[in-house]
Design a binder for these strands. Structure first.
Length: 547
RNA sequence: GCGCUCUUAGCUCAGCUGGAUAGAGCAAUAGCCUUCUAAGCUACAGGUCAUAGGUUCGAAUCCUAUAGAGCGUGCCA
């Protein structure tokens, strides 16, 4: 038993099935143990006053956990709970019953998916969001896969190969290539040296391309994997663009049958160099679905655009039986969302696609914003960004803000920041509980009663009983930061109780003279620790036993 | 020009599907350690929720307009 369960039971008892999605409950407010707006909603649909509905419903509700139902002056329905609700709730936490049933819905969470052309930089800071979201969905019962999509078929990889080859030539004191665009980070020469060490002077301009492409890419993917590990991320699947290209035509077939693909011309298109082209291309009828224009699937040279390959990729996901696809992109891909959605949702029925964009996290150094530029090679690396603050706090920082926040981290203050961070507030709560169990290292008797609990301890327990509601809310909104705020509310209550104990010895967790009370309170402490640990694990943050 | 995101306390941010008196942390002020960790707690203070309209029993939340900030606006990925 917890609030999620109680609320869904109550909705059934309210006898309303049609408008349940507008009805919501709040617990732990000043007015009651549990409140709902149900009367407003029902009154709207039944064309009766809230008062009449209240009279009608009042007698119908016969729930063993509800002690009392009242209606507030302004029309809220307020419930007061029996103590057995808290008792059964606590028992459920101890017995590991506050979890979710497994369902068979396959969810694909794709995140990071940076081009394998260099180490991850701070622009990928928010990738921890996808990781934690996937953890939470898995906990909520979904069959969840964390996926990384590798764009290994695009032009960027050619530029990468050329950049490395150019360095390779330099190593031999040969004239390097004249490149319009190139990657310049130190890893480029590392790769060139590696190749030179392996193959000596085997490669020249006639045969280097394929080998340099695949070697460099593999090398960089290993770097990326380590970068990801530095923030605690490990993907389940790595899918390569080159492997799914074969799916593109199959996907196109479906769209063609719906008359969504045609051969035609777009308006005047300006290429990067300002040249204009009026060629006939293969186009996707995106404007049919609230996009500003139709979108090209082929380039003038006949090859596929990345959009075309992405359609193939999502078709591949559908073929792998994913019913819910979540994609986390940077805000710079914003203009891309509509066409992708329009295309993918037309590939199959009964699929759900959520494309989340995260606003860039800016890093400030010496008072100036650091620019992201992978090619110049001077962007702050993700690993360097993490090193200063540590994986756990880094994740907490990134996860505690909404994705839509334009969040700025000042690297000059990172060290100072560590002392004024809510992260420690949370860890401190966990550490305190840990120390309590050092002081009281007796076996707990789980045959407890709530008689010993103070009022504050009961409110803490109520927060614990909101855990599944929090999870459920995240599966609906995909807003992971709710979890950090939930954790903070537990920590807050816990610290507050702790200090009540300083003022009044009767309100401490451990009572020297009363073993029974101590045991019962420690049972609660045990479940607090359990919930914190569980929630932090979902966020990928390690709870500290001491600070 | 157009599209997306944002604007809430001095600063950084919450505010759940429109709900009751808009909340935390940091900073500021005043208290609390013979005690399981004072990296904590309590009290006080701080707000025309960018601005102006609209929708309704009810708006920080939804709609429209305006102002400001960020990002995007290749047949690059």
């Amino acid at each position: 038993m917890d609030f999620m369960q109680l609320e869904s039971d109550l909705i059934v008892e309210l006898g309303q099935k049609t408008h349940t999605k507008d009805i919501f409950f709040t617990s732990n407010n000043n007015h009651a143990d549990l409140s709902t707006n149900a009367l407003f909603i029902l009154s709207k649909h039944m064309k009766k006053s809230p008062k009449d509905i209240f009279e009608q419903i009042k007698t119908k509700i016969n729930n063993k956990y509800i002690k009392d139902i009242t209606m507030s002056k302004n029309g809220f329905l307020n419930f007061h709970l029996h103590d057995n609700f808290l008792h059964d709730g606590l028992k459920n936490i101890i017995d590991d019953k506050n979890t979710f049933e497994k369902n068979n819905i396959k969810v694909n969470v794709e995140f990071v998916s940076a081009n394998p052309t260099g180490p991850l930089h701070y622009g990928n800071a928010r990738s921890v969001y996808g990781d934690s979201l996937a953890n939470i969905l898995r906990f909520a019962g979904y069959n969840t896969t964390k996926e990384y999509y590798v764009n290994d078929a695009g032009n960027q990889i050619n530029i990468l190969a050329d950049s490395v080859f150019s360095e390779y030539l330099k190593l031999q004191n040969l004239p390097s290539l004249e490149l319009e665009e190139q990657y310049k980070g130190s890893y480029i020469s590392d790769i060139a040296q590696e190749i030179y060490k392996n193959d000596s002077e085997k490669w020249d301009k006639n045969n280097y391309k394929e080998h340099f492409k695949s070697f460099s890419m593999k090398y960089i993917i290993e770097i990326i994997k380590e970068d990801l590990l530095s923030v605690g991320i490990k993907h389940d699947e790595w899918v390569f663009e080159s492997d799914i290209i074969c799916k593109v035509s199959e996907a196109f077939e479906i769209l063609r049958n719906k008359d969504l693909i045609y051969e035609g011309k777009l308006g005047t298109i300006h290429s990067k160099k300002g040249e204009e082209s009026h060629q006939t291309l293969t186009l996707f009828r995106s404007s049919k679905f609230e996009d500003s224009e139709d979108r090209a699937l082929t380039k003038p040279d006949g090859s596929n655009t990345y959009f075309a390959n992405d359609i193939g990729y999502f078709y591949d996901k559908i073929k792998r039986d994913f019913k819910w696809m979540i994609v986390v992109l940077g805000a710079d891909h914003d203009g891309y969302i509509k066409r992708l959605q329009n295309a993918v949702l037309n590939l199959a029925d009964d699929i759900k696609l959520d494309i989340k964009t995260c606003q860039v996290v800016l890093f400030k150094q010496n008072g100036e914003n650091i620019k992201i530029s992978k090619r110049s090679g001077n962007a702050l690396g993700l690993r360097e960004a993490v090193e200063g603050i540590g994986k756990d706090m880094f994740r907490f920082l990134m996860l505690s803000k909404s994705l839509d926040t334009h969040y700025t981290v000042n690297t000059d203050q990172i060290v100072e920041l560590s002392m004024e961070n809510p992260f420690y507030y949370l860890q401190y709560a966990h550490a305190r509980i840990h120390s309590m169990f050092n002081a009281h290292n007796k076996e707990l008797d789980f045959n407890f009663s709530l008689d010993s609990l103070t009022e504050s301890m009961c409110s803490l327990l109520k927060i614990l009983l909101d855990f599944r509601k929090c999870i459920k809310s995240i599966t609906r909104t995909l807003e992971v930061h709710k979890m950090t705020h939930y954790l903070t509310s537990i920590a807050e209550k816990f610290h507050s109780i702790w200090n009540e104990g300083k003022m009044d010895p009767e309100k401490r967790w451990i009572l020297q003279q009363n073993e029974k009370y101590t045991n019962d309170r420690m049972v609660l402490a045990h479940s607090v620790k359990k919930t914190i640990t569980q929630a932090m694990n979902l966020l990928g943050i390690k709870p500290y036993d001491s600070l």
